[in-house]
Structure formats: C-alpha cells, structure tokens
Amino acid sequence: MSGVRVRRRPSAWRRLDAASRYAWPAAFLVFGLLVIGLPLGLPGQAELRPAYAMACVFFWSLYRPSSLPAPIVALSGLLLDLLDMAPLGLWAVLLLILQGATLASRRRLIPQFFLLNWLVFAAYAAAATALAWAAQSILNLSVLPLLPVAAQMLAAAGLYPALAALFIRAHRGPAAAELA
C-alpha cells in the first residue's frame, strides 16, 4: 500500500528532479542558442548556431522525444530565425521537418551503433542546410554563396559527437528511464 502511495505522490524534491530532467533538453537548447551569440570572435560562429540546434533536436528526438515536444522545437526555430536574421519561421519549419524525419526513423536508428547515427545525422543536417540555402535563395531572388553551406554542414557533423557525449551522460540519469 505504502508503495502505491509513494508512487502517486512523490516528494517535492523528486518531482523537482523529474521536472528538471524533463525540462533540461529544452532549456539547454535555448540557452546554448543564446550563448553562441556572445561576441567570442570564433570563426564560423554564425554557422554554429543552426548546427547546434539541429544536433540538439536530432539527439533528443532520437533518445527522449517526450522532453523536446514539437512546440518547443518550433519556438527554438523561431528564436533561431530572430537571432540569425533569417526569414521568419524558416528554421522553425526546418527543425520540425528534422524532428519528423528523426521520429520516423527512430525505431531503426536506436539499436544501431553511434557511428551510424552520426552519419545519419550528418546526412539530415546536410539536407536541412541545403534546404535552408535553397529557401533563402528563393526568398532573396538570388543565388546565395555556397561556402557557408559547406561550413555549416561540417560544423554540424563535427559538433554532434561532442554534444552527444555530453547528452548521453545526462540521459543516463536514474530518473531518466520513465521519460525515454
């Protein structure tokens, strides 16, 4: 009996813990987008922001889809558009498409090795980057330079293993099982 009661009404700390675990991916995504805006003077900082957003959305949609629901992804995409001076809503659409694609291929990707997931992410990110380039070229009515496209694809592919190493540690927490 007592076990049932504990399950129904967890203590405040436990609920706080669960809530923080639930909110962590979204908070980390938004916070990271803002941190990349700091004037750090890194080369390719502009390319890093969409790459970071794509890596976050791919990883969490793959391993813990419930903690990065579609409205949060759309809002993050909107934030990215506003920070980046991209056309309004463009990255919201692209991140949602990325999430949809990830969720659709989730069952096949989860049992695979990390290397394969990485390759799939690189392919998805390249496709999203190419789409962003095409959409912006059409909206600008001019062919935009291709060098940033390549830089962003490389940034996304290079960033993913580092981010994944960090996220996997967060994902393997004791209270994470029920959220998976």
Binding site: A70, L78, Q99
Partner: peptide, 18 residues
C-alpha cells in the same frame, strides 16, 4: 498531431513574415 500542427503553424508564419 502536434508535429503536423506545429509544422503548419510554422509554414503559416513564413507566409505571414513574407
């Protein structure tokens, strides 16, 4: 349904932004 709905919403936003 949330994903398709949010997708439609974002596409609408692109149009409104244009």
């Amino acid at each position: 349904l949330t994903l398709p709905v949010m997708l439609m919403f974002s596409l609408g936003l692109v149009l409104i932004g244009r």
